[in-house]
């Protein structure tokens, strides 16, 4: 019957060919980025994990693929196991982890305190001002991160701009040692990540219905109270998104503590770097990376949840 004639989707040409081998255009679109991310994002983690978690693989030769290490295979595995143990027992790593979390946390709070008024002010500004103001916030982000961190060396150093100004004003008579201290790291992280806090905050605050505040005012609520009871709670999603965008990468930050923090600012990113580049101890570096990742799994999952919600899908 005519009814069955068209029961197959008819494709001609290349697509038809693909379809006959069981591939639709859609599957093709899906497979390319999927395969890319699997190979270059997921598999690398598994390799790191493999090199970091040695115990279960002591007996069998699991690293045959890593021929480079074949002659010291035994050595490498033992060391990895040893290093995991080492990481737990040696204060250095524990301190570095805790310090990273502390520095990231404090910097996130600083970003929030500094970024909220900016985001709120832009959201409240006259619509014709919003785009240029937002552009001003984003512009530094487009210039080099490294250079922006570097700029603070000139400001914070002992004979830097800040000390010179303070001394000229007579506030201090001895230069303050700020550069190469944790304070400089806080400043550097806050400065570098501030736009990441402002943008999600702005987009939540901008969506906030102004009539809510008008209704509150109408009901006799003074502006500051309306802010506390309406604006602030409703902007929590933006705060969370912004905080995660700052906190997670800041925890693993390397460049900022390296350039501004001085030798005493221990952060885990630096430790990993040192193990890898200076001590050439790849398995230990992997173990450090795995441990760092474990710290960040929960925040990253929360971030993905937030991201998924705002990204939205049909």
């Amino acid at each position: 019957m005519a009814e069955t004639v068209q029961s197959e989707m008819r494709h001609t040409g290349f697509l038809g060919l693909l379809q006959r081998v069981g591939l639709s255009g859609r599957a093709l679109v899906v497979s390319v980025p999927y395969a890319w991310l699997l190979l270059f994002f997921l598999v690398p983690f598994l390799i790191v994990l493999k090199i970091a978690l040695a115990e279960s693989q002591m007996a069998i030769p699991p690293f045959t693929s890593l021929i480079e290490n074949v002659e010291d295979l035994k050595y490498q595995i033992t060391v990895t196991f040893y290093n995991f143990h080492y990481m737990v027992t040696d204060d250095l790593y524990i301190v570095a982890y805790l310090n990273s979390l502390k520095i990231a946390f404090i910097s996130t709070i600083c970003c929030l305190l500094l970024g909220y008024p900016v985001a709120y002010a832009i959201a409240k500004a006259d619509p014709k001002w919003r785009a240029p103001l937002l552009m001003l916030v984003i512009l530094p982000f487009w210039t080099s991160f490294l250079i922006r961190v570097y700029a603070w060396i000139g400001i914070l150093s002992n004979n830097g701009v800040l000390n010179n100004v303070l001394m000229w004003l007579g506030i201090i008579d001895q230069p303050l040692q700020i550069l190469y201290t944790p304070v400089a790291t806080y400043i550097g992280i806050t400065y570098s990540y501030l736009p990441f806090m402002i943008l999600p905050l702005y987009s939540t605050l901008e969506k906030l219905d102004n009539t809510l505040l008008e209704a509150a005012a109408d009901l006799g609520c003074p502006p500051w109270k309306a802010f506390l009871t309406i604006t602030l709670p409703l902007s929590i999603p933006g705060m969370i998104a912004g905080a995660l965008l700052v906190f997670i990468p800041a925890t693993g930050e390397f460049v900022i503590p390296e350039l501004l923090g001085g030798p005493d600012t221990l952060m885990i990113g630096r430790t990993l770097w040192t193990e890898f580049f200076n001590n050439r101890d790849w398995p230990l570096a992997s173990a450090v990376a795995v441990a760092l990742l474990l710290f960040l799994v929960v925040p990253i999952m929360i971030f993905q949840n937030v991201q998924g919600k705002q990204g939205g899908h049909p």
Partner: peptide, 15 residues
């Protein structure tokens, strides 16, 4: 769904 007697189950929108 049949349109003009033809089963539309596997007919994509553009056809």
């Amino acid at each position: 769904i049949f349109i003009d007697g033809v089963d539309m189950s596997n007919v994509p929108p553009y056809e």
